[in-house]
Structures are given as C-alpha cells and as structure tokens.
C-alpha cells in the first residue's frame, strides 16, 4: 500500500513537472532562455541514455555525445533528401542511431569498467574525426549531402515552428522517451538488467540472456541519443563538427552521475547543469568555463556523499520529511 502511494505521489509530481515544462515554461521564459531550456531538455534526454546503461548494467558508455551527433547527422540528411514529416525523420534518426549504439555494445560483451569506457571513448574520437572529415549535411547532393554553400532550410514540426512551441515539443518527446525507459526498467528488460548488474554468472544461471540484455540497453541508449540529436538539429537548424567532441561525452556522463543515474530527475538535473548553468554564468558576464569548476566539485560531492546523485538526495529528503510528519 505504501509503495502504491509512493508511486502515485511520484507520478503526480512527474505529471505536474511535465505540464509546467510544456505549458508554463515556454510562456514565461525570455527568448534566450527558450533556447537554453530547449538545449537542456535535449541533453537531459541524452544524459538519460548514458545513465541508463550505467545504472542498469554498471557499464560506462563515453560515446553518448557522438551518438547525439549521429542522430543529428541522419536527421539533417533526411531533411534535405526527403520530404518526410519531422516526426518520421525523428523516428528514423533515432532508429538508425539505435543500431549504431547496438554496434557499440559489441565490446561490452567482453569488457567492463575502465576498458569499456576507454573503448567507447575511442569510438567517440573516431566519430569526431568522421564528423570533421565529412561534415554535416547542408543541402548538398550525394550521400553526404554537403555542398560548399550556405545551409538550406531545416524544417521543424508543423505544430512547433516557433522557439516556444519547439521547447514544448522537445519536452513532450523527452517525456515520452522517459516513459519508454521507465517501462523498460519496470518490465522484463529491467529484471534482466538487475540480475546482470548483481552477477553475470548468476544471471546466466537464472536463464537470462546476458548478451541480449546488454545489447538491448545500449540500443535503447542509442535510441535516446539519436532522438536528442534529431531534436538538436531542429533546434539549431544546422550542426557543425565542433559541437560533438569526444571529451563532451565524459562531461555529460559525469553530470549524469552528479544528477543521479538511477532516476529520470537525475537526467533532468544533468541537462540543467550541462546547459543552463553555463548560460546563467554567461548572463552574469562570467566565463562559462567556470561551470567546469562547479561540476568538478559537484562530482566529488556525488562520489563521496551522494552516490544516488542530487536526485537521490532530493528523493531521500522528501521521503524523510514525509516519514517525520
């Protein structure tokens, strides 16, 4: 009964937060903050992908930003090559990036910990080189779609042409993806991941297909990154190779840990830290790189005192307050 009440309370909280972000936030935010919040929402989705693999399997994927780039690349290519509606291009971008994420999971079959992290980081570096060498489509012809010209027009969804509407749209898509992850965590995949996290040998003994479930997690993570990349292409209307350096994946992963890897709110906090904090510093006339110092301190704090991240601390405090009353 207590569990059901707790779930009900969390559902209501999540719904209220969602409605606030869809309807209130776009209405009250200034033009620059619409852009900043849109970026934060998009990278919250990407952070959820990174934290999913870490929280469920204990594996570190440092190629998430590169996968965001892949999603963005596919989105731009489909935008210029076809007349598909935004939603279909979005789904296709997410699906193709999910396949790339699945391929990235192959090393995970044999590696864990530091070695897997390094391999995914190397993969991110390889994508960085590919993005630089081949660039992002800008309306040119051929498979790569790059012409030595100004970029063409990147379409936005029919109902979300303005920045405010696009923020609402990104929030809605992100919420849907969060629900998708939640359903996975609560379903067969979540049970399989939980067994693997505790002991791969025991999971196998219990009849869990370890390979399948690992691939599943990476594919879902890639799907989220691809969706984020496609939304980012719609937000900025163009992408460039400098925006997806390998090192950014480390930062995003660290912020996912700081936010709290096991909860959707942790990803939201990661998105806020990743994009809103530097913008606030900029707005105060301070160097946005100061945020890196704050992030370092926050990571130390998370490692030493808050393994569940800021989201975990908020949830614990909330539970403590309820039990006290």
């Amino acid at each position: 009964m207590a569990l059901r009440i707790s779930f009900h309370r969390r559902f209501v909280t999540a719904t209220v937060f969602f409605l606030f972000c869809v309807f209130v936030l776009p209405a009250i935010a200034g033009a620059i903050w619409l852009k900043v919040f849109t970026s934060a929402v998009i990278f919250a989705l990407a952070a959820r992908g990174a934290s999913l693999v870490y929280a469920q399997l204990g594996l570190v994927n440092l190629a998430q930003i590169a996968l965001v780039g892949v999603g963005g690349w596919v989105m731009l290519r489909l935008n210029y090559a076809t007349t598909l509606p935004f939603e279909l291009s979005l789904l296709a971008s997410a699906a193709i990036t999910a396949i790339v994420g699945m391929l990235l999971s192959l090393p995970a079959m044999r590696m864990r910990g530091l070695y897997l992290a390094l391999v995914t980081l190397m993969a991110a570096g390889a994508f960085q080189i590919l993005f630089t060498a081949f660039q992002f489509p800008n309306g040119g012809s051929g498979f790569l779609g790059v012409a030595m010209q100004s970029p063409g027009e990147m379409r936005r969804p029919f109902l979300a042409r303005s920045d405010a509407a696009y923020l609402s749209y990104c929030v809605a898509v992100t919420a849907l993806c969060m629900v998708l992850v939640f359903l996975h965590e609560r379903g067969k995949a979540g049970r399989g991941w939980a067994l693997i996290r505790q002991s791969e040998a025991n999971a196998m003994a219990a009849g869990v297909d370890v390979t399948l479930f690992k691939v599943w997690a990476f594919t879902l993570s890639g799907f989220l990154a691809g969706t984020a990349g496609a939304l980012l292409a719609g937000a900025l209307r163009l992408l460039d190779s400098k925006s997806f350096p390998a090192g950014e994946s480390i930062l995003l992963f660290a912020l996912a840990i700081v936010g709290g890897a096991g909860h959707w709110a942790g990803a939201v906090i990661a998105g806020i830290l990743y994009r809103v904090v530097p913008a606030v510093l900029n707005d105060f006339g301070l160097d946005a790189d100061l945020a890196l110092i704050l992030f370092g301190a926050a990571l130390l704090h998370a490692i030493i005192t808050a393994p569940q991240g800021i989201a975990g601390q908020i949830l614990s405090a909330s539970a403590f307050r309820r039990s006290a009353t």
């Binding site: 200034g30 033009a31 852009k35 900025l236 163009l238 400098k242 913008a279 946005a288």
Partner: peptide, 18 residues
C-alpha cells in the same frame, strides 16, 4: 559566441528578441 553554434544562437536571440 566563442565559435559555438548553440551559444551563437542564444546570444543573437538575446540581443534581437530580449
């Protein structure tokens, strides 16, 4: 804009719209 497309978009929006 620090050669950053996201930041470039934000600062231009700030100047032009805000």
């Amino acid at each position: 804009d620090q050669w950053n497309p996201e930041l470039a978009s934000q600062v231009a929006t700030k100047l032009v719209k805000d």
